[in-house]
Nucleic acid binder design. Structure first.
Lengths: 338, 338
DNA sequence: TTGAAAGCGATACCAT
DNA sequence: ATGGTATCGCTTTCAA
């Protein structure tokens, strides 16, 4: 049996390869009878078009790349990426795209992968998920002609398309909520200051205090790293500063904070309230259940894909900016139910 | 500026496209001076070979596929997949391969993706990660000519290459350890019986008991689903059965079990010992720290890639079987340190 | 509606 | 060591 190609299918169906191609790509102008004959032959033979040949001829690979740079540490620590990928994969499926993953683990790998991320004929565009300030790939991407969007506000100049959740408003609402319930020495356990997430959530914290005329004290702000242990350590410090509430930039860190408070014998929320960010599944299982800001991670992934497809089809200008809303999920740790 | 192609690079460097191709692919027979000139032009122009054209001509895509079927629920619940992907991605990078992800979320997506997984010219081979009995894709893969390996012992007939961890011995060692420390009413919280993981871990449990002459009681075996809640419920039942130890098929479920025991006022390990499986990061942070069977997840991914590349290069026969060893990590929850 | 033929941008064989 | 050329399997004008 000869290698199956369009030509061969055409031969068997009694038509040209052009017609077979039209059938496969659902073009209008094929007579029903011929179309059916071709479909039958395809069915019988189990023919599948050769993807590379297709990409070459059509100048479309129908592959999207997802770039996850070195901050990959978080990849294991946090369910964030799995959820994001889930959304991205789902949207890719829906739109007939295949997803390629570019993950770096160290600087040398990073260098090696740049060419591949930027190479033609491998993907139609790229989703870039990192909001670390000094990421070197982002400028390269920006100056290339590879269509791309970032997940999370990018920390470089230029008209870059991105989708993000509303970190500022999310945290602002959480802090306002605590103020309304009488807290005044509200501490903030933040993310790294060189990430947009870290910056924006901190900004939300500051804005809420200022809005309500509560003084902003540097001593009540601790920069941490999104890990459980980081939250644990930061909480210990903030207890010493006499905080009566903790607004934590991620649930993972909030879990660490709760652990610290338990060990220190602090009652939550009576003595100190805690609010997280993410709404991980585990947030409802903590003792007490964690009040937290829910962010639509999966939807972020879906929107990223759709935005990218838009950029691919219609060009990068003007830059798209999509900000998805968050939602404050009130459980017991904030004290609102006391 | 004309589209950059081999031809164009050749023109600028004063040689033929053949020579440029040789330079790019590191063929020997190119004179140093010409090679340098070509490299310079490539550098200047920022030329990148067109991946699809390359794949078509070379009949190699340098892309591997990773298929994660519907059991994807676990994808969020468990850090397993992120870790596995991490290993796979790392190995792909090391070997100059790009990783494509095929994730299904429901039956209809599944159907739609089959052609793509099986299509030619998209990947050079596929890693299949599912050990659910009735997965329909696996037989298709087996009967196709797509090179593939599975992660986890496959539950279909045939000489299929796979890599797995030693689930049987891992659990057997854990149970033996508990018996040595005087436990006799050892319960087992298992994974789904239609997965090879569920089957093998249960088998390890049974083997250890039989080896030591401890009766196997069905009432002490609960089939669960690898979720925290599943572990919680199962533990409650086993406490009622008077278990003095729990061998749990995953850390996630063990966390649920610990929570149940805490709520029931059972002291761990004094009244009831607990052993998990996985050694997640969180396992050392529980109260008390969890004794567990560590499995080399990342290494599994790496080995899967290397096995697949071997299959791609040297054909599927004979089937490769790689079983990676586990390790019992003794902390406090098993009572060995009392 | 259909087919012929010209690409798409590489690789690799065969001469030289 | 280098160049010419056929080829990979498809898409897409252009004519018929």
């Amino acid at each position: 049996m000869p290698q199956l190609t369009l030509e061969e299918i055409g031969r068997r169906a009694g038509c040209s390869r052009s017609t077979v191609s039209r059938v496969i790509n659902n073009h209008e102008s094929v007579s029903p009878s011929v179309r059916q004959r071709v479909l039958d032959v395809i069915e019988e033979t189990g023919y599948r078009p050769h993807a590379a040949a297709r990409s070459l001829a059509a100048k479309r690979t129908h592959v999207l790349g997802l770039v996850i740079p070195r901050s990959v540490q978080a990849f294991f620590a946090d369910p964030y990426f799995p959820r994001l990928i889930q959304g991205i994969a789902q949207a890719c499926n829906r739109h007939g795209y295949t997803l390629s993953l570019f993950m770096f683990h160290n600087e040398s790998e990073e260098k090696e992968l740049y060419p591949r991320v930027l190479s033609r004929g491998l993907t139609d565009g790229v989703i870039f998920s990192s909001s670390v300030q000094e990421d070197p790939l982002l400028p390269l991407l920006r100056d290339s002609d590879v269509p791309f969007v970032t997940v999370g506000r990018p920390l470089v100049e230029g008209p870059i398309s991105y989708v993000d959740v509303d970190n500022v408003v999310g945290v602002r609402n959480a802090v306002t909520h605590l103020i309304r319930h009488g807290r005044r020495r509200i501490g903030h356990i933040g993310g790294p200051a060189d990430t947009s997430v870290g910056q924006d959530r901190r900004q939300g914290y500051v804005e809420a205090l200022q809005e309500r005329g509560v003084p902003v004290r540097e001593a009540l702000i601790v920069e941490s790293d999104f890990t459980e242990t980081g939250g644990y350590l930061a909480a210990t410090r903030l207890v010493n500063e006499g905080a009566d509430a903790l607004v934590v930039a991620s649930d993972k860190m909030a879990f660490g904070a709760l652990r610290a408070l338990r060990e220190l014998g602090k009652r939550v929320p009576e003595e100190i309230a805690v609010v997280g960010f993410d709404d991980l599944e585990a947030a409802s299982l903590t003792q007490p259940p964690l009040t937290t800001v829910r962010q639509p991670i999966r939807q972020t992934g879906i929107t990223a894909v759709e935005t990218l497809l838009d950029v691919i089809d219609n060009g990068p200008q003007p830059a798209r900016r999509v900000i998805l809303p968050t939602q404050l999920v009130i459980r017991d740790s904030c004290g609102a139910r006391l």
